[in-house]
């Protein structure tokens, strides 16, 4: 029974840890499918986290916080668009710039506005998203096996967790079953064809980036308003890059993205749980190895040793209209 409980708890923290990855990964999916590389996921999550926590604590409303997180994150996505779509700048360079501006400005503004060393004030109840208890969770809590799975694993998360997982089928539907999705994928593969059909490549790519901004905003809000009761400097801690890795690992497909994020979340949860205690068969594994595993796996995948990851064909190339 102890083992079972441990497994449930690990899986529970897997879900909690993979949610920000999943949201950021889906965010990257929209922009990369539209042919815009986005290294700035990390930075957009960070400004989202800061704006969310700051607005929530000032206006005493979790939803206003979420709205502000999305707004600021979309604004940063638009900077990326302005540089890489309108001015055809290098998308990688623009993404790197956004990450720096985000990292610096959240600390400077946080310190100037709240004077707590770059933190925002601790969020009070009502200012953050509370856990939702699914119907009947308390009633069947004591039922063996099923009880803990339903009451602890599935129930008791915040609304953003359910939203994140709902975004997976929704994203699939948008990309593969709507006209917008078809055009978005087309613009990532062959923008000239889309242009010939009389559809604006730039406007389509801007819309893809708005989707990206919305999702990274939610991801940031999750970090600062659910996982943590406030903003802490550099709280994304490389999650944007892991999300990028997960996106490649998922070969730019929404359902795969969910599994990749769950896998990376699971590795994270496992390394926290084990903390250097020995595993059966393998023996003691250094924590650092577990932390590096998502990156190592992605490199191996990229090298083409587990299937082949083929990015959208027009990715990273600014579109120049025929003159």
């Amino acid at each position: 029974m102890d083992v079972f409980n441990a497994v449930v708890q690990t899986l529970d923290s897997t879900i909690r840890l993979s949610v920000p990855l999943l949201l950021a990964c889906l965010a990257g999916l929209y922009s990369e499918r539209a042919g815009i590389f986005d290294i700035g996921l990390e930075g957009k999550m960070l400004v989202g986290a800061f704006a969310g926590a700051a607005a929530a604590s000032v206006f005493h409303s979790a939803f206003l916080g979420l709205g502000m997180a999305i707004l600021i994150s979309v604004a940063f996505a638009m900077i990326h668009g302005f540089a890489s779509i309108t001015h055809r700048g290098n998308q990688i360079v623009s993404g790197v710039a956004i990450n720096f501006i985000a990292a610096g400005s959240t600390i400077i503004l946080g310190q100037a506005w709240f004077q707590q060393g770059g933190r925002t004030p601790a969020l009070q109840p009502g200012e953050r998203f509370e856990a939702i208890t699914l119907p009947g969770a308390d009633a069947i809590h004591d039922v063996p096996i099923l009880g803990p799975i339903y009451a602890e694993l599935l129930s008791g998360h915040s609304i953003l967790v359910y939203l994140a997982f709902a975004m997976v089928p929704f994203t699939w539907w948008v990309l593969f079953r709507t006209r917008f999705g078809l055009r978005l994928r087309a613009v990532g593969e062959n923008p000239a064809a889309v242009d010939t059909a009389g559809i604006s490549v730039a406007w389509l790519r801007y819309r893809a980036l708005i989707c990206t901004g919305i999702l990274t905003g939610i991801a940031g809000a999750y970090l600062s308003m659910v996982q943590n009761g406030g903003f802490v400097k550099d709280m994304t801690a490389g999650k944007g890059y892991i999300a990028l890795a997960a996106l490649i690992f998922a070969k730019w497909k929404p359902v795969n993205a969910m599994f990749a994020c769950l896998l990376f979340g699971f590795l994270d949860a496992l390394s926290i749980r084990l903390q250097g205690s020995p595993l059966p068969i393998i023996g003691k594994v250094p924590v650092q190895f577990m932390q590096a595993l998502p990156y190592i796996l992605t490199v191996i995948l990229l090298a083409g040793f587990i299937g082949k990851a083929i990015p959208p064909r027009a990715g990273g190339v600014p579109y120049v209209k025929e003159r």
């Binding site: 900077i79 302005f82 540089a83 890489s84 001015h87 700048g89 290098n90 998308q91 360079v93 623009s94 790197v96 710039a97 956004i98 990450n99 720096f100 501006i101 985000a102 990292a103 610096g104 400005s105 600390i107 400077i108």
Partner: peptide, 14 residues
């Protein structure tokens, strides 16, 4: 860090 980011943005991407 902000200045660095702005320099990368304006001297690089833009």
């Amino acid at each position: 860090v902000i200045i660095q980011g702005l320099v990368i943005l304006f001297a690089g991407a833009l």
